[in-house]
């Protein structure tokens, strides 16, 4: 299985931010996205996750293969750790949340309400959600925010075993996770505002 991206342009607020992206991510591999703040990494991930339409280009993706991890974890404060995870497991049609709890060292917290967790613990719970989706391709947006050194280690281990088990991950991050991964710097693909015709939007085209 592979995720292929050909000539992809993505837009935020109607303006192109990245243009002409082409890459392939096959199972068993990790691709790290790099680029300064505001360079369009989040927009790219959201487009790949299907949350917004691409401006141009093609995304080749096996059906039901993506698990998207956003900035926000989507946790419900009044539900316990186990309840939060069980909900997502049932949405994705899986049942077993134990491996996910174990992987992110959450077993001791399983009956704690999510609002009583620290920021880092919440983040670990948000990442544990990826494991219960059973999806092969992880699209992760700054997954290590508010994680301490040990938790970053846990996360890196989780990604390693996921990839070893036939998964793949596309991770936008600024820190070195110590993973054997290829790196894609999005900076060269930034849309040039002075050459708006490279991927014209319908609106620009109408005026020029």
């Amino acid at each position: 299985m592979e995720l292929t991206v050909e000539g992809l342009s993505v837009a935020r607020g109607g303006m192109p931010v990245l243009e002409g992206l082409t890459f392939t991510l096959t199972t068993g591999n990790i691709l790290i996205l790099r680029g300064p703040n505001g360079s369009g990494k989040t927009t790219l991930l959201r487009t790949l996750a299907g949350l917004q339409p691409p401006l141009a280009g093609r995304i080749g993706l096996p059906p039901e293969a993506i698990a998207y991890g956003a900035h926000a974890d989507g946790l419900k404060a009044t539900l316990s750790v186990a309840e939060n995870l069980t909900f997502w497991a049932r949405v994705y049609g899986t049942t077993d949340i134990e491996p996910a709890l174990a992987q992110f060292n959450l077993k001791g917290l399983r009956n704690r309400a999510a609002h009583s967790l620290s920021a880092g613990q919440k983040r670990r719970l948000g990442l544990a959600r990826l494991l219960v989706t059973g999806r092969r391709f992880w699209l992760l947006d700054e997954p290590t925010v508010s994680l301490d050194q040990a938790s970053v280690g846990l996360f890196a281990d989780a990604v390693r075993s996921h990839v070893a088990g036939g998964g793949a991950a596309l991770i936008a991050t600024h820190i070195d996770l110590g993973l054997a991964a290829e790196t894609l710097d999005v900076a060269p693909f930034r849309a040039d505002p002075d050459r708006p015709t490279r991927t014209p939007t319908a609106f620009d085209e109408a005026f020029t």
Partner: peptide
């Protein structure tokens, strides 16, 4: 609308 697009482009630049 055109002005809005120009402003956005300016900000991006």
């Amino acid at each position: 609308r055109r002005l809005h697009a120009l402003e956005l482009r300016e900000r991006m630049a």
